[in-house]
Design a protein around this nucleic acid. Structure first.
Length: 505
RNA sequence: GGUCAGUUCGUCUAGGGGUUAGGACACAAGGUUUUCAUCCUUGCAACAGGGGUUCGAUUCCCCUACUGACUACCA
């Protein structure tokens, strides 16, 4: 079997879409599984849609995701090969010429406007074998007429010549056998004189051939144009080394129907891009998974299972496990709706596996931005008891702010329910208990307070909730005795005193 | 309009001629807890419709419906 070489070939027209991330991921998994190579090629043959930051964004995104490429636009190589199509433009013309010589392509002078007119005149007009004789091209003009027009500086395109009536068989690794008849194909433009650039179809086939691509794994929107690509491989006498195709199902909107699009994310409140995108033109900032607090491993795990499954009940996979288990024949044929809740669950699972030290470092940065000074040791202890209730590091503050700042208000409903006339004096006794325990820790505090409650036949829930109210400000959160320990005796006592003074019934 | 493809719980999916159609997310209930979460347990919930083939179809075939992609000098 020939060495596996696959590519991810985005067009730098904007931020990398999450569907593109999945396509790249599947390419990566497939490549690694077969000890193959993954290439990053930039398909920037449409100068009109070029967006300045897009290429760097794509590179940064994969850097963050931890998907490395073996070759690509961002990786220097000794041969001086460019992986950017705009820099390979001279290459493509040669192959267009070859097709011209073989009479498998022809020159056409019809302007876009003229074709537009034709489309209005003729219903379902298509530039193909049935109509090309009515048009202005090298099949209707003589060689000298063509030459004259070119000499005059007339712009032209090179169109592939497709003859009708042939069934083209696509042996797709995911979709199976798909047959498309050439009669429905049109004579696609391969190359344009105006900018000296090829269109996607020519550039893609030429590059895949020259780069020795063994498998083309791409979105299923390409399936309909695959017959053209197959024809091109044949026309250029590359049929023997034609890559195998695998067309991935689309990612769909979470609600309703249709392809997941950029606007869905903002409308529904979740990102559709890996990283935050700063639009150079509109100055708009669109959120990304990284900024929302997703771990790249969690996003990858989630994406991997969206359209593929191992056939077992395992759902949590490391990247290495994905490489081991991934296979194209277990990729589903139907589109998958994007389930944001499940993505959060994956992140929750990953969060639990990360060390307290590492999480503390992340949390420390958030605390810093809130001008809170704290020791790493303390933050680590806080993280240890709150991480299980969080999906994101960004959730930490909401559930643990009281570890760093004193409560400013006290939950009214808790006061109403739990705060009695004699509560202050009970709390005074608890202050005494806290000040007397040696050593000062959660266990000792627990024993002392529970002893006090049982000795005096008090209502546990009432005492505990009032105490929590003093320390936290509301009636939820982690184990109260752990809070007492972490806060320390002085802070705990201070907070109780403040609360006794502030809370009036 | 044409071509191609797809359709199993709300969502992601497993399964496949005979199954109580399995799992996960979400949701609900119960347990645990001083509280809120977590966690555990349980529950809820699906083969698009119609024809065949067959002893038997969700599974195979056909039709219909629906959905999607494509139908650019965009990728």
């Amino acid at each position: 079997m020939r060495p596996v070489r696959v590519r991810f070939a985005p067009s730098p027209t904007g931020p990398l879409h999450i569907g593109g991330v999945r396509t790249a991921l599947y390419n990566y998994l497939f490549a690694k599984q077969h000890q193959g190579k993954l290439l990053l090629r930039i398909e920037d043959t449409d100068s009109t849609r070029f967006v300045a930051n897009a290429e760097q964004y794509i590179i940064d995104a994969f850097q963050w995701l931890g998907i490395p490429f073996d070759e690509g636009v961002h990786i220097p190589n000794e041969e001086g090969i460019s992986y950017r199509q705009s820099e390979r433009k001279t290459l493509y013309k040669k192959y267009a010429q070859e097709l011209l010589q073989k009479k498998l392509a022809y020159i056409a002078f019809d302007t876009p406007e003229e074709i537009e007119v034709k489309k209005h005149e003729v219903a379902n007009f298509q530039y193909d074998a049935s109509t090309r004789h009515q048009m202005k091209n090298s099949m209707t003009l003589t060689d000298s007429e063509v030459q004259t027009l070119i000499n005059k500086g007339e712009q032209y395109v090179i169109r592939v010549r497709i003859e009708p009536g042939e069934d083209i068989n696509i042996q797709d690794l995911i979709c199976g056998n798909v047959v498309i008849n050439t009669s429905i194909l049109d004579d696609k433009v391969l190359w344009k004189s105006s900018d000296q650039l090829p269109t996607y179809h020519l550039a893609n086939v030429v590059d895949d051939h020259l780069m020795n691509i063994s498998h083309v794994i791409r979105g299923s929107e390409w399936l309909p144009s695959t017959p053209l690509h197959i024809l091109l491989y044949r026309y250029l006498s590359w049929k023997d080394t034609m890559p195998q195709f695998a067309h991935l199902p689309l990612l769909l909107k979470p609600e309703g129907n249709g392809k997941l699009s950029k606007r869905d994310g903002d409308r529904l409140g979740f990102p559709v891009f890996p990283l935050e995108w700063h639009d150079p033109l509109t100055k708009e900032i669109i959120s990304g998974y990284r900024e929302k607090g997703y771990f790249p491993e969690a996003l990858i795990n989630f994406l991997a299972l969206l359209g593929w499954n191992p056939g077992t009940e395992q759902e949590l996979f490391s990247l290495d496990e994905l490489i081991l288990h991934f296979s194209l024949d277990r990729v589903s044929k139907s589109g998958a709706k994007f389930d944001f809740e499940k993505a959060k669950w994956f992140n929750h699972k990953y969060l639990q596996t990360i060390s307290n030290a590492e999480l503390a470092d992340k949390y420390l940065r958030i605390l810093q931005s809130k001008n809170i000074v704290s020791s790493k040791d303390y933050v680590e202890k806080v993280v240890a008891i709150i991480k299980e209730r969080a999906n994101f590091v960004e959730d930490f503050w909401d559930t643990s702010a009281f570890f760093f700042t004193r409560p400013l208000t006290y939950d009214e409903t808790v006061i109403k329910k739990r705060w009695k006339e004699n509560t202050p004096e009970q709390l005074q006794i608890i202050i005494g208990l806290l000040q007397s325990i040696q050593p000062y820790n959660a266990l000792k505090a627990h024993d002392a307070i529970m002893q006090y409650i049982t000795d005096n036949s008090l209502n546990t829930a009432q005492i505990m909730n009032c105490l929590r109210l003093c320390l936290v400000g509301y009636a939820k959160g982690p184990d109260l005795f752990t809070i007492i320990e972490l806060l320390g005796v002085n802070e705990s006592v201070e907070r109780i005193n403040i609360a006794i003074n502030k809370i009036k019934i």
